[in-house]
């Protein structure tokens, strides 16, 4: 645990180094990937997602001592969501997906199949972007951030039932959009 704290501190500028006491920084760092994926879901492109994840951690580390959250993971996910919404308000999402070359390196697929796959993913992204904000944030938190219903409810200050209802509506809307778009592309 102490090693993890020291490891994080070496990556931080001196003014942000926290007090040397057993804090839940490891928990925070453990959700790095989830925070990044959540940012990816909101931003719609990898470059913005990276910046947003970094901004989220910068905010979290500077406010950690003051806030002392009971549930650090839910807390940082809430910061990530707010950071993403702030950014969305500042400017519209650029929208382009990850470059195709990096996909091939991950899955070893052929460029032709990847082109088709990327087009399908682009449709999904458009479908998610077309959702109303309150449905979109629930879907992104669930599908990209991989948060449990209870965690989403905690982060958004909603009941679990509302989260499930919104998630269901969001999924149906995305499916409808995807099928219509996909049908148009294939015809």
């Amino acid at each position: 645990m102490q090693e993890a704290v020291l490891e994080i501190e070496t990556m931080m500028p001196p003014h942000l180094v926290l007090a040397r006491e057993p804090v839940d920084l490891q928990d925070l760092l453990a959700c790095r990937d989830r925070v990044y994926c959540l940012c990816l879901g909101f931003a719609g492109n990898a470059a913005d997602a990276r910046d947003l994840a970094q901004e989220t951690f910068a905010k979290a580390l500077s406010h950690y001592e003051a806030d002392r959250p009971e549930n650090p993971q839910a807390w940082i996910m809430r910061i990530a969501r707010n950071t993403c919404l702030d950014q969305a308000r500042r400017r519209k999402s650029r929208g382009p997906l990850h470059p195709i070359s990096e996909w091939t390196a991950v899955d070893g697929r052929t460029p032709e199949s990847e082109a088709g796959r990327e087009e399908e993913i682009a449709i999904v992204r458009r479908a998610i972007a077309a959702l109303p904000g309150r449905l979109r944030e629930v879907l992104v938190m669930r599908e990209y951030g991989e948060l449990a219903y209870q965690e989403i409810a905690l982060a958004l200050d909603l009941s679990a039932g509302t989260v499930m209802s919104r998630l269901n509506r969001a999924r149906r809307a995305v499916l409808k959009f995807y099928r219509e778009e996909h049908h148009e592309k294939t015809n």
Binding site: M11, P13, R32, R50, Q54, E102
Partner: peptide, 24 residues
């Protein structure tokens, strides 16, 4: 499809340097 997107994006993210305390 979402999982695929995340997988590729995460591979790229992990390959890059990440300084959690620094504002981009």
């Amino acid at each position: 499809l979402i999982a695929l997107e995340k997988k590729a994006a995460l591979a790229d993210f992990r390959a890059r340097e990440f300084a959690p305390g620094v504002l981009p």
